[in-house]
Design a protein around this nucleic acid. Sequence first.
DNA 1: CGTCGTCAAGGACGC
DNA 2: GCGTCCTTGACGACG
Length: 491
Amino acid sequence: MSTQPSSGVVLRRSTRALTVATHSTEVQPPIVPPPPPTPKVVSVKRKRTVVEATEIVEATSQVSDAEQSPKKKRTKKAKAVVDTEEFQESPSKPKRKRQPKPEPMYVIPDVEKKKTTFKGRLGYACLNTVLRNKKPASETVFCSRTCRLDSIKKNGLDFVKDLARKNVEDLLTVIQWNEDNNIRFFRVSSEIFPYASHDKHGYSLNYCSELLAKAGALARKYGHRLTTHPGQFTQLGSPKPAVVEASRRELAYHTEMFELMGMGSDSVMIIHGGGVYDDKEGTLKRLKGSIKNLSPNVRARLVLENDEMCYNAEDLLPICEELDVPLVFDYHHDQLFPSSIPPKTIIERANAIWKRRGIKPKQHLSEPRPGAVSLMERRAHADRCENLPPDLPDDMGKEIGAKDKEQAVLYLHRMYDLQPVVHASLRPANPNPSMRTNGRKASPKKPSAKAIKKQAEKRGLDDSDASDLTDCPSEDEELPVEEEEDAGEEA
DNA sequence: CGTCGTCAAGGACGC
DNA sequence: GCGTCCTTGACGACG
């Protein structure tokens, strides 16, 4: 288990992952994109032909493209083309077809102008939709590549470490994009180093120290603030020691990342209070104990945030004040699960802690989708935010939680005239956002794969049918469970 | 390239 | 107790 024998053979499965991974590693270091206000960020890594550099740029040129450019595409595609259209198979033939596909012309409506006294910075979380959606797929830029445990078992630990390296390489691109677009506050995905805190497949980030240092240097050069938000599995108040230990590892890995990046004390890690376990007081005590037990460098970056289900700001403030742990105030969560204390007071008390600690304050802002009624619906983030709250201190960092990510920030920048925006970076809002919280939910489906799996496990253990089950000796769990990750997410 | 079921980890809630 | 949801995203098998 630990250290899977990384079989020498790299099974190439999933062409997709593969391409990504490979590109990443063997291509020359992408790194720092071009100059400043370049809207089109033509990307960096490209290894095959040159061709598309142009197409990305504008929609207009397309027309004659086909005939005039003999050079055409990458082998793979060319081949595909040939396959499908055999009839015109002439050797000398400069194959046409494969139109690069026009970059859509975006129509960006004007925004309503609003006023604010806010002078702080707005940021977003984890994912940049412009970079993520670059086409072709080999051009995409994002920092949350991951894989399945099976892939680690098959391909070895280096497989996942390479994915993470690519994530960090892309982080450089994202930071540069943010700078070019006047966004200087960003939450790094908690999945940037997948499985780094896993008990069996965890790994140190040292192998990546050079690249991390480079990313950190770039962020500091531009004065960007980077934060992170470990996921919902981080449960410092759990009565189960193993869960608390896993949470501690998770926090330690995020701390290690920021340290290798050379980030200062403003680079904090935000977590929620976690579950209640039918005993809020007792849990808060455990939470407090766990925080006290954290190593000083981890604790130095720890920050709590009110959530919408279990611990509101009022629940957390006493702990925060006693232990000097800053509180990120989330407006949306506070609406769903209000404190008896008014927001204004909460914010004042929270700001006092931030100030005492010498860390720039931070808040989360998001809005429920328009028309949301049920609690579930109201929990989901709207695509964008329409309003900034009043009376914000100038040094406040506001992370905007919205489906449209950086677009939501640019939208606010425009409405409130907070920062100049690069027009080419703008994308139109979805005219009719759906209410469903997310994709597949009501699928009729069969019994549920997990239920089946669970049963199977159970059965396996009982029968002790030797068929397979090589491992899983003891640690079964009380309540398996699974579900997703957060991709960093959260409010 | 698109579609779709599933995915490390906890836990709350509806039924 | 089981199924479903979690601020949402990505993998990876398959067509």
